[in-house]
Every structure is written in structure tokens, then in C-alpha cells.
């Protein structure tokens, strides 16, 4: 499956109590167009999606935070998964959509294929952790298990490359922040 197809499947599982932090490029754009608004659409700050989600989750226990990021952004800020595992916020979930590419910038390779995510997660303190291929036959179950998991959860999905043509995010970052703040 492609990343936008996974995000489309996710739509039905997101409630008003949830808050998504998405990573710059295609993922933020897909979340903006395909999931109810507002969410924290990050445009810059590659590698900092997990810290932003962690900051919200640690500060506001009443909200469930889901960080959605690509493999490039995950690798850039990789030490933050350790920080998140250290604090174990029960209201934080991390979804990594891995196409082994910097897809937004033209499909250049990342180094993610060198990492055995299953084994890496085994060594990491988390309530739920799974690495699998995003398949149409199993995606509903994978996302349901992940979103319903109690406690700090990580799901890594290997996805196919391919994007949906979507307009850029029309809200200015200040508007994104203002709309998010109003939900608290």
C-alpha cells in the first residue's frame, strides 16, 4: 500500500480527542487533506516530529497524540524515540511510514533498509511495537491494534512509493498553531 492509502484507512480511527503531529512534505499534506482538521501539520523542522508530539503528550494527558512521520525524518531525529521510550507517555503513539526514500524531494534513497526495525523495537521500552508491511488484507487490523493499544505504542509500516496529487497546505503555520491552541 502507499502512504496516502494508509492515511485514508486511519481517518475512521481518529477522534476529536486525538491530535496528529505530521512530518513535512507529503505526509503533512495528506493528513491535512484526508483527516479531520485541525492537526499539527509541521512544514519544516525535519526530525523533530517526535519531540513535538512528546511535548504535547507530556503536557496534556487528556489528549491522545499520534506522530506520523517518514523514515527520513525518523532517522534524522532517531534519538527522540529513546527519549519517548524513557518517559513512556501512555497517550503517545508513533507511526512510521517507511518507503526507504526521501520521497517529497524526488525519491532519493534513505538508509532505512539497514535497520531491522523489529529487532530495534525489541530493545526499546514500549507497550506496543510492531513492524510489518502495509498490506490491504492486514492494514485494518494493524491500525486497529495500534490505535487501541494501551500505553506508548510504535508501528512501523513498509509502504510502496506513490503519492496523490494534493494542493499545498493552505493554512499559514501561525493559523495552524492558533487553531490547534483553540482545541485545548
Amino acid at each position: 500500500m502507499k502512504g496516502h492509502e494508509v492515511i485514508a484507512e486511519l481517518k475512521a480511527l481518529i477522534t476529536e480527542k486525538d491530535i496528529i503531529v505530521s512530518c513535512p512534505g507529503n505526509i503533512s499534506r495528506e493528513v491535512y487533506h484526508m483527516i479531520d482538521k485541525p492537526q499539527v501539520y509541521l512544514r519544516g523542522s525535519m526530525g523533530l516530529q517526535i519531540p513535538v508530539g512528546l511535548g504535547i503528550a507530556l503536557e496534556e494527558k487528556e489528549r491522545n497524540v499520534m506522530v506520523i512521520l517518514g523514515d527520513g525524518s525518523f532517522l534524522m531525529g532517531m534519538s527522540s524515540i529513546v527519549t519517548a521510550a524513557f518517559y513512556q507517555p501512555t497517550n503517545l503513539k508513533i507511526l512510521i511510514l517507511d518507503n526507504a526514500k526521501y520521497f517529497t524531494t524526488g525519491g532519493q534513497a534513505t538508509t532505512s533498509s539497514a535497520l531491522d526495525f523489529s529487532n530495534f523495537f525489541k530493545a526499546l521500552n514500549a507497550s506496543f511495537k510492531k513492524s510489518s508491511k502495509a498490506e490491504e488484507s492486514t492494514i485494518k487490523q494493524d491500525l486497529a491494534e495500534f490505535t487501541k493499544a494501551k500505553g506508548f505504542a510504535i508501528l512501523h509500516l513498509l509502504i510502496e512509493t506513490g503519492k496523490k496529487e494534493l494542493a499545498n497546505i493552505s493554512w499559514h503555520p501561525e493559523e495552524i498553531a492558533n487553531r490547534i491552541k483553540q482545541t485545548f
Binding site: V21, S45, L48, P51, V52, G55, I56, L58, G77, K181
Partner: peptide, 8 residues
Amino acid sequence: GIASGVAF
């Protein structure tokens, strides 16, 4: 980044 999340 964490402080940004706190500010959001």
C-alpha cells in the same frame, strides 16, 4: 521540539 509541543 518538546518546548514547541508544550506551546502548542
